[in-house]
């Protein structure tokens, strides 16, 4: 059975070819666009499950394409960028991108992102109990268990964790998290975020220095998986 449609918007034929081969060998159906205009048109015609969008396009910037798409398209958009573009990445994530990949990227990484994106589209938001490895999180009763033992979390830690859980697989920027947890005006207080992520990791991760669930995206934010 063929899996979801994926739209690639990138002007580099080699990158498109590479993505096409990888995705098709994983049974995804691939649609390709070589510029922003064509990309938006194809997105409207096919409503793909995932859009892979390059930030550097010939006709208009990836940011513009992203903004236009986000006026009506509500599924996953993965940004492709080159190294040392953290500011661009943060801007794209703040404008509604769900995830990003930096070139050159490894195949396994790409497929993990695609799978997470497709899964996110089908997640039932009404779900209240989530399982991750040995961790179990119940959003209604506010309980978190690790290896079936209840972990005591402070209110802020729990809020942070439930924000992560609700956005599983998605990269959340520091700014976004600060705004959601501490409210408008706290956006510059990233040290709070670092501290609470640190304490949260100590409670739920096996090795807090090599986290498996709350992953740091350097210079960008966090991803929960």
């Amino acid at each position: 059975m063929s899996k979801a449609d994926i739209l690639i918007i990138d002007d580099e034929p080699q990158i498109r070819k590479l993505l096409e081969i990888t995705l098709e060998s994983n049974d995804y159906k691939v649609i390709q666009a070589e510029n922003g205009k064509q990309g938006i048109l194809l997105a409207a015609n096919h409503t793909p499950e995932v859009i892979i969008l390059d930030l550097g396009l010939p006709d208009k910037s990836g940011h513009e394409v992203l903004k236009e798409l986000r006026t009506w398209y509500n599924k996953s958009i993965i940004i492709l960028s080159v190294l040392n573009q953290e500011e661009d990445i943060v801007k794209a994530l703040d404008n509604g991108a769900t995830d990003y990949l930096t070139k050159p990227f490894r195949n396994a990484e790409l497929m993990a992102r695609i799978r997470a994106s497709v899964r996110r589209n089908t997640i039932d938001n009404k779900e209240t109990i989530y399982h991750y490895g040995t961790i179990c999180i119940d959003l209604i009763s506010h309980t978190v268990k690790k290896n079936n033992e209840i972990i005591k979390l402070t209110a802020t830690e729990f809020n942070l964790l439930s924000l992560f859980v609700k956005n599983e697989g998605r990269v959340l920027t520091h700014q976004y998290i600060l705004k959601e947890i501490w409210g408008v005006g706290a956006q510059t207080e990233t040290q709070y975020l670092r501290v609470f992520v640190g304490t949260l990791r100590k409670k739920i991760e096996d090795n807090p220095n090599a986290p498996e669930h709350i992953i740091t995206e350097s210079g960008v934010g966090y991803r929960f998986q």
């Binding site: 520091h174 990233t190 640190g198 220095n209 986290p211 740091t216």
Partner: peptide, 12 residues
């Protein structure tokens, strides 16, 4: 400049 947990960052 950003606030960093350097144990974790170096590990990563």
């Amino acid at each position: 400049l950003e606030w960093c947990d350097l144990n974790e960052e170096l590990f990563r």
